[in-house]
Amino acid sequence: MLSLGFVTLDEQQDHTYCTEVAKRARRYGISVCRFSPLSIDPQTENVRGFLFQEETNEWTNAVFAIPPFLYDRCFYGHDERSKKAKPIMNWLKQRPDLTFLGYGLPGKWDVYEALSSHPLLSAYVPPTVRLERADDVLVLLRREQAAIAKPVHGSGGRGIGIFQKKGKTLSVQDHHGQEQAVIARRSELEQLIASWSRRGEYVLQPLLPLSTPEGEPFDLRILLQKDENGRWIERVRAVRVGRPGAWVANVRAGADIRPFSEWLDRLSSSKRLFVLDGIETIIETLPPYLDHTFGPLFEIGLDLGATDNGAVWILDVNSKPGRKVAHLLPPEQQNELYEAPLRYCLFLARGGKDNDLHIDH
């Protein structure tokens, strides 16, 4: 029997998702376990983790060898556990006897650079620079009303900062729209950026006008996964709508998830054509390009923006996406999400090469 291991930093992270996958694993001839990279014994290379027992539908404590197939669901912060876990995960990914469902993406800057160099995708990438000094903000704000700073390794809206012109000063806000500082001098801006840089790298982009007629921030989330033949499949597309006054539509901050079709129906026919053409170009081109550029992936959460003129923008690409948009799916399609890691694991076990460029919708 094949063995597939979910790797997470937090014991309870993805617990429900992992359990639903494990319940379906037996029919594929797969046993499922879960563990933290910090629970690997460096001497024996055995793992202290949890094995799923199909008879009871429960997890039991166990010690076992590192499974040959691994599903990386580790999310890192600035804490000590993250600092210790990262090099262990890198070591696991370099081992030829282990296969990951997906090998992940680097930080936002590397991804934006790769997309900006692609002949088709570059048209959908907002102008992006590294945020290193005050001039980066000031130059951008000479031609834009507002700019958004994003942590290179951030997700879920955490750490985002908004720079907005406010008379002769700059208003600095968090992603909730709460003002954090008012900057009147260049030296104050330099100090702020220096303090952010101590936490990690940032990129800077124009703040795109992405809001509903009611003033709610929104974006489009598309979940893509590979199927049992290594082909990219679109699983679901949805619209995330935040609260008025916020800058990002983040589900953790209370954003609603709405059907894509409802949003699309509100557009004029000409704008609808522009938007759909942009989306189709991106989802046909981006997944195989990322595979080729950064190594094989299993799934992608694609965040897109659509402005009033019908332009579509790539806001973020996540190789460890959440699944909150999946609740819009009927039960049989939700089941496909839970079976997808198992089917793809079998494909890899058969020696499959995931280089098929076709995307099914």
Results as ranks from 00 to 15, higher is better:
Met1Pro: 05
Leu2Gly: 08
Ser3Leu: 14
Glu11Trp: 14
Gln13Gly: 11
Gln13Asn: 12
Asp14Asn: 14
Thr16Gln: 14
Arg24Ile: 09
Arg24His: 10
Arg26Ser: 12
Tyr28Trp: 10
Ile30His: 07
Ser31Met: 09
Pro37Ser: 08
Leu38Gly: 06
Ser39Asn: 14
Ile40Lys: 12
Pro42Gly: 07
Gln43Gly: 13
Gln43Glu: 15
Glu45Lys: 13
Asn46Cys: 13
Phe52Asp: 11
Glu55Gln: 12
Thr56Phe: 05
Trp59Cys: 12
Trp59His: 15
Trp59Arg: 15
Ala65Pro: 12
Ile66Tyr: 08
Phe69Trp: 03
Leu70Gly: 13
Arg81Cys: 07
Lys86His: 10
Pro87Glu: 12
Trp91Ser: 13
Arg95Phe: 04
Trp109Gly: 00
Trp109Cys: 01
Tyr112Arg: 03
Tyr112Gly: 00
Glu113Thr: 09
Glu113Arg: 09
Ala114Arg: 04
Ala114Gly: 09
Ser117Cys: 10
His118Pro: 09
Ser122Phe: 03
Val129Ala: 11
Asp136Glu: 05
Asp136Leu: 02
Leu141Phe: 01
Arg158Val: 09
Gly161Met: 06
Gln164Leu: 07
Lys165Gln: 11
Lys165Val: 06
Gly167Arg: 07
Gly167Asn: 05
Lys168Asn: 13
Val172Arg: 00
His175Met: 04
Gln180Pro: 04
Val182Glu: 06
Arg185Val: 01
Glu188Cys: 01
Glu190Leu: 05
Glu190Val: 04
Leu192Cys: 08
Trp196Leu: 14
Ser197Phe: 01
Ser197Trp: 00
Gly200Trp: 00
Leu204Cys: 00
Gln205Arg: 00
Pro206Ala: 03
Pro206Gly: 04
Leu208Glu: 00
Ser211Gly: 03
Thr212Tyr: 11
Gly215His: 03
Gly215Val: 01
Phe218Gln: 07
Phe218His: 07
Asp219Lys: 03
Arg221Gln: 07
Gln225Gly: 02
Asp227Leu: 07
Arg237Cys: 15
Val241Phe: 03
Gly242Asn: 11
Gly242Lys: 12
Pro244Ala: 12
Ala246Ser: 14
Asn250Pro: 01
Asn250Gly: 03
Ile257Phe: 01
Asp265Tyr: 06
Leu267Asp: 02
Val275Glu: 09
Val275His: 11
Leu276Trp: 07
Thr285Gly: 13
Leu286Ile: 08
Phe294Ala: 13
Leu304Met: 09
Gly305Glu: 11
Ala306Pro: 10
Val317Gln: 12
Ala326Arg: 04
Ala326Tyr: 06
His327Lys: 15
His327Leu: 10
Pro331Glu: 11
Pro331His: 10
Glu332Arg: 11
Gln333Val: 10
Gln334Glu: 07
Leu337Ala: 06
Phe347Arg: 03
Arg350Lys: 15
Leu357His: 15
His358Met: 14
Ile359Pro: 10
